[in-house]
Design a binder for these strands. Structure first.
Length: 218
DNA sequence: CACCAGGCAAGTA
DNA sequence: TACTTGCATGGT
C-alpha cells in the first residue's frame, strides 16, 4: 500500500526524468523578448505554432513588436498582420487589450509588472479579456520567470491517457498535480511543460501513436 | 475531403 | 452551474 502511494507520488517526477533523458533541453519559450513571449502566448491559442511564427515574423518585419507601436496601431490593421494564425479579429483585440492594460496599470512597463508578487499578478493578468488560465500562466512562467506550472491540451491528454486523471479536469487541479510534487523552480516548470508539448506532438495527438513513446509503461 | 492545432468568452437552459 | 457555439488559418 505504501509502495503504491509512493509510486503514484513519484510518477510525476519520474515522467520528467524520462522525458528529459529522451529529448534533452527544449529551450523554451522560442522568443527573444518578454513582449514576444506575450504576443506568442495570445496568438497560439488553439492554433498551430507554425502559423504563429509567420505572424511574429511579419510583426518583426514591420517593426510592430513594441508596446508603443502595438498601442497606436488599430485592431483592424493589426489583424491583417496576424492573419496566418487564425481568429485574427479576436486575437488583434486581445493583443490590444493586453497592451492597453500594461499602459493603464503598469505605466507601459513590463519590468514593473514583473516585480509584482506571483498571486496578485496572476489575478491581475487574468482580468484582461482574452487572457485565460493557460495564457496567463504561460506569460507568468515564460515571460516573467515566475514559478507557475502551465497546463495545456497536451498536458491534460497525457495525464488522462496515463490514468493519472479520468474525465475532463479542472485546470487548477491539474496544475496542482504538478506543483504539489515538484520543487517550485521556474526552470523546472519551464522545461517540463515544454517536454510535455514535445512528447504530445510526437506521440499523444488526438489519434494516439504510442509506438516508441518514452513514457510507455509509466 | 475531413480533421486538427501550445484557448477563451459569450450565450443558453 | 454546466454545456454549446463562434472565432479562422494552414498543415496533414
Amino acid at each position: 500500500m505504501n509502495k503504491v502511494i509512493s509510486l503514484r507520488r513519484r510518477r510525476i517526477p519520474l515522467m520528467y526524468k524520462r522525458l528529459f533523458a529522451f529529448y534533452g533541453p527544449q529551450k523554451w519559450w522560442p522568443a527573444k523578448t518578454r513582449l514576444e513571449v506575450i504576443v506568442g502566448a495570445i496568438l497560439t491559442q488553439n492554433t498551430n505554432w507554425g502559423n504563429v511564427e509567420r505572424a511574429i515574423v511579419s510583426l518583426q518585419r514591420e517593426n510592430l513588436l513594441s508596446l508603443e507601436r502595438l498601442r497606436k496601431i488599430s485592431s483592424s490593421v493589426l489583424a491583417r498582420h496576424i492573419r496566418s494564425c487564425g481568429y485574427y479579429n479576436i486575437k488583434a483585440r486581445r493583443l490590444k487589450n493586453f497592451v492597453d492594460f500594461v499602459f493603464c496599470q503598469y505605466d507601459g512597463s513590463l519590468e514593473r509588472m514583473r516585480r509584482q508578487p506571483l498571486v496578485r499578478l496572476r489575478e491581475h493578468i487574468l482580468s484582461v479579456n482574452g487572457v485565460g488560465p493557460e495564457t496567463a500562466d504561460s506569460i507568468l512562467l515564460y515571460a516573467f520567470r515566475k514559478p507557475i506550472f502551465v497546463v495545456d491540451a497536451y498536458t491534460q491528454r497525457i495525464l488522462r491517457r496515463h490514468g493519472i486523471i479520468n474525465g475532463p479536469q479542472d485546470y487548477h487541479q491539474m496544475q496542482q498535480i504538478f506543483m504539489r510534487r515538484l520543487p517550485r523552480e521556474p526552470q523546472l516548470f519551464n522545461e517540463y511543460h515544454a517536454l510535455l508539448v514535445r512528447v504530445g506532438k510526437d506521440y499523444c495527438r488526438t489519434q494516439p501513436r504510442c509506438g516508441q513513446c518514452p513514457l510507455k509503461g509509466l
